[in-house]
Design a protein around this nucleic acid. Structure first.
Lengths: 222, 222
DNA sequence: ATCCGCCTCCGCCGCACGGGGGAGAACGCG
DNA sequence: CGCGTTCTCCCCCGTGCGGCGGAGGCGGAT
């Protein structure tokens, strides 16, 4: 009669507290799923997982000290009977998809996924299945599917006006100094905005930010 | 009765000899146009122009020592009654368009332009008019015109197979080291290919190369 | 048989970039 | 009136990147 004698034990690793809380809230509300720990950095994730031995880890790619990909590698390499790791990121990107899978991740999920998808994902990987967010699959399989209707990922809304300006100029191929000149601000300011754009888009460098801008429809070719 | 008592004197500055020869061939065939000199570097361009005092300069953006933009600035800044300078490049790019105009260029032309357009351009600027290649104008005016049908600029054909692979990986946001890993070659090799891609696309850095890839349709979003 | 294009790889070098801090001013909002 | 957000700017530091030049091997074209 017990719904689940051994609930799925989950660890959430993300540098943003809000995200962790949100994920925890969603998962704790579910029957048979239990968030047993959190981590704010890649290094923390490794030690927490080592200590708590969860069944599933939700791993952000972008974290201080050690990124999620490397944390995944370390966990899988150093632990016997390691947990299933679902890599969570803000936008779909070939590099992350490939690297996550290469690192041995069991799944790949976008932060903009619905709560239901998240729960589904945890249950799936806990059963030993793998999953890929549809869009990621499309990316891997090679663009034969129809164009998605999402012109505006979550991060676009989070960009401030100035940051949007900067991203547009980045996508025009300008350097930080040129952006500063175009906006009539100091180079340091341009750098600050660029850094903010990188953080919010989840990009590692300006090139990935520009890719994200194209892929999200923030800017369009031609 | 003399067709043109004082023909338009032109200097061609481009680091590729073939391009120089081609431009010279096209222009020399025209009545009233005379190619009086060539330059293979930005520095050469400055001195040649200083010495020959042409009416028009066809200036490549990408050249050794000093790029075409800076050479343009120097010529316009240091010469009295300077020549009209038409900046020539391989692909349309916001940064180059803006910079060229900001540097005081009288016109902006793509290398893929037809011979007739080139001649027209020289005649136009010689008369004191300015010109912008249609596509460049569209870029500046802000994409309200219809999509161009050019899915494949000249440089795409010039990319070798390996270079195309590398560009695709660049457009996936990978670093040189990651590209090397993915292609199972040494980092130095990846760098070489990246450099070749930058040269052939006329890009200054990997970000501009990725932009070119998107804008040309070499890769498509979604 | 020779030449040329492509792929592979090596070094050196300078710089723009990105990470990680911190700090002050203006503004709107509650 | 505080408070949060945004925009502005500063420091230091490590490094990925791009410029430059060279080199060898290999296969196809002539």
């Amino acid at each position: 009669m017990s719904g689940a004698p051994t609930p799925v034990r989950v660890v959430v690793a993300d540098d943003e507290e809000m995200v962790r809380t949100a994920l925890r809230a969603i998962l704790d509300a579910e029957q048979g799923i239990e968030v047993v720990g959190e981590a704010a950095t890649g290094a923390e994730a490794v030690s927490v997982v080592r200590a708590l031995r969860p069944d599933v880890v939700l791993m952000d790619v972008r974290m201080p000290e050690i990124d999620g990909i490397r944390a995944t590698e370390q966990i899988l390499a150093t632990l016997e009977d390691p947990p299933r790791i679902v890599v969570v990121t803000t936008f779909e990107n070939d590099a992350y998809v490939y690297d996550a899978l290469h690192a041995g991740a069991a799944g790949f999920l976008l932060k903009r996924s619905a709560a239901e998808e998240l729960v589904q994902a945890v249950r799936l990987v806990a059963c030993g299945d793998s999953l890929l967010y549809p869009a990621a699959v499309r990316t891997l399989a090679g663009r034969h599917t129809r164009r998605r209707e999402t012109p505006d990922p979550a991060w676009v809304a989070r960009l401030t006006g100035r940051e949007a300006d900067v991203l547009r100029l980045m996508a025009a191929g300008l350097t930080n100094a040129e952006i500063a000149g175009r906006l009539a601000v100091g180079p340091a300011t341009a750098k600050t905005h660029v850094a903010a754009v990188l953080a919010k888009t989840g990009a590692r460098d300006r090139t990935q930010a520009v890719i994200a801008a194209y892929e999200s429809g923030f800017i369009t070719p031609g």
